[in-house]
Design a binder for these strands. Structure first.
Length: 980
RNA sequence: GCGGAUGUGGCGAAAUUGGUAGACGCACUAGACUUAGGAUCUAGCGCCGCGAGGCAUGGGGGUUCGAGUCCCUCCAUCCGCACCA
């Protein structure tokens, strides 16, 4: 058979594609546009593993397919190159993160190139490139200079706010702003100093500065995120972490909460992602109600979604941080309350969460007045009430809320029943929304749903509360006390932030001598020399990782424009992403922030779309598939003398046993009593013992009533093939042991699904597979693995099948070693195979069922192979439809077929129905639902003809045992079903 | 606890609208060609049964002439959120 030399082929065509700039696309074209985007990677030091390319391969197939179908396809790639690992490496080694990043990118690019992706590399971008982050800073400025007008429901320039303030103060302004914003008049505003005005505007700006509590680790000299803190200590190094209030840059994403929610309805994204975003935004409808406090002028304002349960309120709970706490605490309770608040303050989020089952709280000594019943109800503080959500206070309904119930039980408070469907146990509340309200005055007899509506109307009527919508979404903290990120384009004049002028952008990341915070606890940028704007100090924190990735998709449209973030012409042409491929782990991060920025840019009229990606597909995560060997250490009682003395032999005897044998041992290494494998095991061990004896080693007879050292060990997956251990390579790495297997000819490893990681020896590197089987095989195999959206363990077993397919395809074009195709007319059978394949593959790619497309190709090639078809009229279109999957082999054969241009410029063949029509159709005929026979009918037979024919059929009649058929069901083209 | 997803041979999986369940591939078995086979080709391959046949899509129930697919219910696994009032 002619040789399919993938190494030569792939190298040749990758070079050709680069030289001929085959994948560069213009920003104008008569063709319709199609924008296929991958989530760009963070270039980590480890390089790509086989999980990364899964999505890239699928999106590459889509973009090649679209291109063959006449679209002008934008398919770019770049790097999310600001990030923590490069900075941590810099702290350890002193190497500038830019150098580390460049090296990693070079490796990534090499790996990506080797897989033959059709990226337009001329548009490559990196978020850490000043030419790129110039525009990230520019967008930051736009957001800073904006406020959110709830009346127009969009962001507006801050000047429109200033104009209103000057004219009539802020009493008529309905805006997204800080909760503590006071109402001021125009006179007050106009009387403010410049500094006062600027400070006031910060309450409205969509990027603002505010005091925020952060986790500060003095030993590491840095801020840590919540997940980097464990039980009050840093995860890395175990240093203590304290809470510290710091001025922090934040973005007012909450202004967009509602639009981020409603926008989900018009984009074609996976439902789980939408659901995660909905949960994250967490919109809930309810009411805020004021409770008077006995003996105080202040009121406790609570938020509730279940006002129907208001007559079930038997106490109130405030968050320990609540401002009301000092005011309403009585002298008798003061000490207990202060102690509790102090403890709560020092508890980390994590402690608080892990301790959720332990109900704690303290009575304040004060009582609230129930707004309807007038009852006095005690007010407690407890840390199960969060200061950050709603009003930081709750009306506790123990019969309907589990947490309130637990609290009531602990503090022996009443648990009034307010619903006739409620069934309480000793330990459980019942939050039912069924039944009718009882014991509730004017709500009695209503369903909970109606009672909620009635309740809200009543509180509004009485002026003690308002209808209210609440969100879980919090504003996004934007500043990071890190070096390797975009500098925030701000300097301070008299402690007021000022924006760096556009013409001075980019504000380049300065050089520093070390990447650690300063002694004063300032971020690393505090080490930079002359880090000031004409003597006014620049901001020291940098932007978070999500800044650059929140708009990069627009930059690809016009990646090298120095005058604009992206030209209007390019934006108008490419508009938005048609197909976005990436992991679901970004559901509430990147994917939400990007939608936020897109909507913002839309409000300012800068772009035409308010959602950046029409369609999103999540590729599944590839997990590792670890292999194991099972080791049994027998007692050696004598060794050859050259091994040294008995106490300290130079070598160890290791016997590898099968997984079944391993499983027969318990955790202590004792053979489970009564296991049926016992005799077999002894037998196998005896055989090994004999072998050992031949080389001068004696081991004690195995006594299965005692304990042995039996271990399950990871074995490197690269020396395992189809779960079978390559024994020669395994023993080569075991120089200090005598290695024996209970079955000497082959050894089957066990396997488990785990995370892919070096320590588990289960990382599979695409480079190894590319050099062994070629990129085309790897591409097709990754698609063949299963549905693209499904997570699955990586398993190299079976890659041979795909490899065999490509070789078979290749051999269709070759006779002996020479390329040979025939110009004869194809037969009907051959045409049928071709057109059936075109039809099926096009449909499959359209619905992204790429695993079945690969199967379709395999079937087609098997059929063509058995038809001995080598006809150009069949093979040429087959080459074209295969090219999105296996571009290198397709390019090679396409050129051998005599074509001068790249196969990507071919047009996708159309299938013709005429070749797919069958002469006759075989109808399976069933009687009473059980299949009995297949009867052939002409393809154009009508339903009636089929029925009549089936009934007339002698065989059927015989089966009916003389009974008359009552009903015959004909399902088009499928089944004739006869019911007796 | 809440939300979402998924359960089909030894394994990865297919079955687009309710219509011959297990396509295709791996592994396995037998055979052919070979000095050889880690190459290639042919055949077999869900389970039980010698067979006819019976049983099979996580378990149980239902709708239907007919259910992997639709409905109810229970179970298992994975993912996300998690004291959100």
């Amino acid at each position: 058979m002619a040789d399919y030399n993938f190494q030569e082929i792939e190298k040749k065509w990758q070079q050709y594609w680069r030289d001929q700039k085959v994948y560069e696309v213009p920003n104008e074209s008569d063709k319709p546009k199609y924008y296929v985007l991958d989530m760009f990677p963070y270039p980590s030091g480890a390089g790509l593993h086989v999980g990364h390319p899964l999505g890239y391969i699928a999106s590459d197939i889509v973009s090649r397919f679209k291109r063959l179908n006449g679209f002008n396809v934008l398919h770019p790639m770049g790097f999310d190159s600001f990030g923590l690992p490069a900075e941590q490496y810099a702290i350890q080694t002193g190497q500038h993160p830019a150098i580390t990043t460049d090296e990693n990118i070079a490796r990534y690019k090499e790996q990506l190139m080797a897989l033959g992706f059709s990226y337009d590399w001329s548009r490559e971008l990196r978020t850490s490139d000043p030419k790129f982050y110039k525009w990230t800073q520019w967008i930051f400025k736009l957001i800073y200079n904006s406020w959110y007008n709830n009346d127009t429901d969009k962001a507006e320039h801050i000047d429109t706010l200033v104009a209103k303030l000057e004219k009539e103060g802020n009493k008529n302004i309905n805006a997204a702003c800080d909760a503590d914003t006071p109402i001021i008049s125009a006179d007050e505003w106009n009387g403010y100093s410049e500094k006062e005005q600027q400070l006031f505007l910060l309450k409205y700006r969509l990027t603002y500065q505010a005091e925020t509590t952060v986790n500060w680790c003095p030993a590491l000299g840095t801020v840590l995120s919540n997940d980097e803190v464990k039980d009050g200590f840093s995860e890395r190094g175990g240093h203590p972490v304290i809470k510290k209030k710091m001025p922090q840059w934040s973005m007012r994403i909450t202004a967009y909460a509602d639009r981020l929610l409603s926008g989900l309805d018009k984009i074609d994204w996976p439902e789980p992602i939408k659901e995660m975003q909905r949960n994250w935004i967490g919109k809930s409808y309810g009411a805020e109600i004021d409770f008077d406090i006995d003996g105080h002028d202040e009121k406790i304002r609570v938020f509730t979604t279940r006002i129907d349960t208001i007559f079930g309120v038997s106490f109130m709970v405030l968050a320990p941080e609540s401002e009301l706490v000092p005011t309403i605490t009585t002298d008798e309770q003061k000490q207990a309350v202060v102690e509790y608040v102090e403890v709560a303050k020092n508890r980390s989020e994590r402690e608080r969460m892990s301790d959720a089952k332990n109900v704690t709280g303290v009575f304040t000594g004060s009582y609230a007045i129930h707004p309807f019943s007038g009852d006095k109800i005690p007010v407690y503080i407890a840390d199960y009430v969060l200061a950050g959500y709603g009003t930081g206070a709750v009306m506790a309904v123990p019969s309907g809320d589990q947490r309130d119930f637990d609290f009531a039980k602990k503090f022996d408070l009443p648990i009034p029943i307010i619903n006739d469907a409620q069934v309480l146990t000793e330990t459980e509340a019942d939050p039912t929304k069924e039944g009718k309200i009882i014991n509730s005055d004017f709500l009695n007899g209503l369903s909970p749903a109606n009672a909620i509506e009635r309740g809200i109307q009543e509180v509004e009527k009485r002026g003690i509360g308002v209808r209210k919508v609440n969100y879980k979404l919090r504003d996004a903290i934007f500043g990071r006390q890190r070096y390797w990120g975009e500098p925030i384009p701000v300097y301070y004049e008299d402690e007021i932030p000022k924006l760096v002028p556009d013409e001075e952008l980019p504000l380049n990341l300065p050089k520093v001598d070390e990447y650690l915070p300063t002694e004063d606890g300032d971020p690393p940028l505090g080490r930079a020399k002359d880090w000031s704007h004409n003597g006014q100090p620049y901001e020291l924190s940098t932007m978070p990782g999500w800044a650059g990735s929140s708009w990069y998709f627009f930059r690809y449209m016009d990646a090298h424009n120095d005058g604009e973030f992206c030209s209007k012409k390019a934006r108008d042409y490419w508009k938005d992403v048609d197909f976005y491929m990436g992991g679901s782990e970004h559901a509430t991060g990147h994917l939400l922030y990007s939608r936020f920025w897109t909507k913002f840019l839309y409000d300012l009229g800068i772009i035409e779309v308010d959602e950046f990606a029409k369609k999103l597909i999540n590729q599944g995560m590839i997990q590792g598939r670890s292999n194991f060997v099972y080791r049994f250490i027998p007692d050696a009682i004598s060794y050859p003398s050259e091994w040294g003395n008995k106490e300290k032999p130079e070598k160890v005897v290791e016997i590898y046993i099968s997984k079944e044998f391993y499983d027969a041992f318990d955790d202590n290494g004792i053979f489970k009593a009564g296991n049926s494998l016992k005799a077999e095991f002894i037998n196998q061990i005896n055989r090994v013992t004999k072998e050992l004896k031949d080389i001068g080693i004696r081991i004690a007879p195995v006594d299965l009533n005692r304990e042995y050292l039996v271990q399950k060990l990871h074995v490197d997956v690269s020396i395992v093939k189809d779960d079978e251990l390559i024994i020669s390579e395994f023993t080569r790495g075991k120089k200090d042991s005598i290695v024996k297997f209970v079955l000497s000819d082959s050894y089957k490893c066990g396997w488990e699904v785990e995370k892919m990681s070096k320590s588990k020896f289960n990382v599979v590197n695409p480079d190894d597979l590319v050099s062994k089987y070629g990129a085309d095989t790897l591409r097709m195999y990754e698609m063949f693995l299963g549905p693209i959206e499904q997570s699955k363990p990586w398993n190299t077993n079976g890659i041979e099948g795909v490899y065999k397919f490509l070789r078979k395809f290749w051999s269709l074009f070759h006779e002996e070693d020479t390329f040979k195709v025939s110009d004869e007319q194809p037969t009907k059978d051959e045409l049928k195979v071709l057109h059936g394949t075109i039809k099926k593959v096009s449909e499959d790619v359209d619905r992204l069922s790429l695993n079945t497309s690969v199967s379709t190709f395999m079937i087609a090639v098997n059929e063509l192979s058995s038809l001995k078809c080598n006809k150009r009229a069949i093979l040429e279109p087959m080459t074209v439809i295969l090219s999105p999957f296996a571009p290198h082999i397709a390019e090679e054969l396409w050129h051998k077929l005599g074509n001068q241009t790249s196969v990507v410029d071919a047009s996708y063949p159309k299938f013709e129905e005429q070749y797919l029509v069958e002469d006759s159709i075989e109808y399976p005929v069933s009687v009473n639902g059980k299949m009995r026979a297949k009867i052939s009918f002409p393809a154009d037979a009508s339903k009636e003809e089929v029925e009549a024919g089936a009934l007339a059929n002698e065989t059927i009649q015989k089966w009916m045992d003389g009974k008359d058929p009552r009903k015959v069901i004909v399902v088009p083209k499928k089944i004739v079903n006869i019911v007796v």
